[in-house]
């Protein structure tokens, strides 16, 4: 336990020293929100979005940016780098388990995602009057399960990529698919129904996040799919992961 605490503390320090990545993962969605919010028409209620403003409608999709950045980009890159540089292997020669390092990375990824979500929700509320998530329990469930599913996909990327470079190369298409189906590139109302539907079932499950934010309980099927993806991708990652 002492060792895990020390690993967590050390890894937290290392993350805090990497300012560009920190800003990119925690603050980027909020920055995009602020930039969009500076355009007056995007702040006006619009019948296309149930009389919400575009900014409000788009906020849950921005959350997908953080989730994808942390889970599919940052996490696999760190782990692949640690493996490539022999850091995991060196750890394997000590009484500490490399699993402790993996656990610390997951904890820090979660903290980063939560910090980013809170920052986004608060700025959206204060600056643009976007209501806070209206179904808090449902939102928490959707966020936790969606994050778990994405982190598992990130671990799978880290497991199959032999080097940090290949992890990044592999992460790019996964990242883009997540952003596309999450309605980040094209707002989801512009997507054909079929593609928008697919987005409900690809991690992190933007439909569930959107429903919970606007006050509807997320569909159990949407949440269930995220749980299944988390378990399946997590199990595959555990099976394929190599310490060296």
């Amino acid at each position: 336990m002492h060792a895990f605490g020390q690993i967590l503390k050390t890894e937290a320090k290392l993350h805090l020293r990497d300012i560009p990545t920190l800003v990119l993962t925690v603050a980027l969605p909020t920055l995009i929100l602020v930039v969009l919010g500076l355009i007056p028409t995007l702040r006006e209620p619009n019948p296309d979005f149930d009389n919400q403003s575009f900014v409000t409608y788009f906020t849950p999709s921005l959350l997908v940016v953080t989730l994808a950045m942390v889970a599919v980009n940052a996490l696999p890159t760190v782990l692949a780098t640690y493996r490539e540089r022999g850091i995991l292997r060196r750890l394997a020669t000590t009484p500490a388990s490399p699993l402790a390092l993996l656990a610390a990375q997951l904890v820090l990824a979660l903290v980063g995602i939560l910090a980013s979500a809170v920052l986004l929700a608060v700025v959206a509320r204060v600056a643009f009057g976007t209501p806070l998530p209206q179904h808090p329990l449902g939102f928490a469930a959707a966020l936790v399960l969606g994050t778990a599913a994405l982190l598992a996909v990130g671990l799978l990327v880290a497991a199959v990529a032999p080097t940090a470079k290949s992890a990044q190369a592999l992460a790019v298409p996964v990242f883009m698919l997540i952003m596309f189906f999450g309605g980040v590139y094209l707002p989801r109302f512009l997507l054909p129904d079929f593609l928008a539907d697919v987005g409900a079932y690809t991690p992190p499950g933007v439909q569930a996040l959107l429903d919970a934010w606007t006050g509807t309980a997320p569909h159990p099927l949407h949440l269930g799919i995220m749980a299944v993806i988390a378990v399946a991708a997590g199990a595959a990652a555990a099976k394929l992961f190599r310490w060296e």
């Binding site: 002492h2 060792a3 605490g5 020390q6 690993i7 050390t10 320090k13 290392l14 020293r17 990497d18 640690y82 540089r85 022999g86 850091i87 292997r89 060196r90 020669t93 000590t94 009484p95 500490a96």
Partner: peptide, 23 residues
């Protein structure tokens, strides 16, 4: 180990403190 490195931003004293906590 041969060719085993540490994270770039980890400082000397921190590395030793970290490894000391394992034993």
């Amino acid at each position: 180990l041969q060719e085993s490195q540490l994270p770039d931003r980890l400082r000397v004293a921190e590395a030793l403190q970290l490894y000391a906590s394992f034993y």
